[in-house]
């Protein structure tokens, strides 16, 4: 464990809490992509199957359980409890355009051709692009609520901090996982445009709106 990984995990946890808070406090999931949230639930489910087969640490197990539970909790709030507020007209990104190629790629490029490893690889690839429906939704509506933009900033920062963690681990532990690093870089790059808007607008007290 190093400071980058820990702050990355905290940012990830913070993002999830912010999203749940937004939905709970406003009693609405307007502006949140149900498709991105469905893919995140799929990401956690396929990645953390090793909870059953492998114990790493209490921290690791606890965080994994929190991430799985919160992702299904978010789906419950979006698709059952506050279903009426779900903005499906703007959530039109086609999930199969991501899930199918990612599934194919995880069969082709992985560390080991075994079921658990392929599922882990699938989750890493899918996570890297799972935010696209959310970003697409913001580009369609042209704006995001401030709390939603805080959520996205925390969520994007998490993988950016993981990149620093991988640099650290490469130099100090000799650890290098090409699949995670490449996917993590792709994931972070997808947020760059959003980061720019967030810093130039939300940090100055304005709402996140897209330039016309």
């Amino acid at each position: 464990m190093n400071v980058f990984r820990l702050t990355g995990d905290i940012a990830h946890l913070l993002a999830i809490i912010l999203l749940l808070m937004k939905i709970w406090k406003t009693r609405s999931c307007a502006g949140v992509s149900g498709k991105s949230q469905m893919m995140f639930a799929l990401v956690f489910t396929t990645r953390y199957l090793d909870l059953i087969t492998n114990f790493i640490s209490l921290y690791n197990t606890t965080m994994k359980m929190i991430f799985i539970a919160s992702s299904y909790g978010t789906l419950y709030l979006m698709f059952l409890k506050f279903r009426a507020t779900y903005d499906s007209n703007h959530d039109t990104f086609r999930m199969e355009f991501l899930v199918v190629p990612v599934a194919g790629l995880s069969f082709l490029v992985n560390h080991d051709f075994s079921p658990l490893e392929i599922l882990w690889t699938f989750s890493i690839y899918l996570e890297s692009v799972a935010i696209l429906p959310q970003l697409f939704m913001i580009s369609k509506t042209g704006e995001a609520e401030t709390i939603t933009s805080h959520y996205l900033f925390a969520l994007g920062s998490y993988r950016a901090l993981y990149i620093l963690n991988w640099v650290y681990r490469f130099y100090f532990e000799g650890f290098f996982d090409l699949i995670a690093v490449v996917a993590g870089c792709v994931q972070t790059v997808l947020y760059c445009d959003f980061f720019y808007l967030y810093i130039t607008k939300v940090w100055k007290g304005k709402k996140l709106t897209l330039p016309a």
């Binding site: 990984r5 995990d9 990830h12 990645r47 090793d50 492998n54 790493i56 640490s57 690791n60 965080m63 994994k64 991430f67 560390h111 080991d112 882990w120 993981y162 963690n165 650890f175 996982d177 995670a180």
Partner: peptide, 10 residues
Amino acid sequence: MEEEQEHDEL
């Protein structure tokens, strides 16, 4: 499998 590395990250 000797090179196998467990996934210890989240």
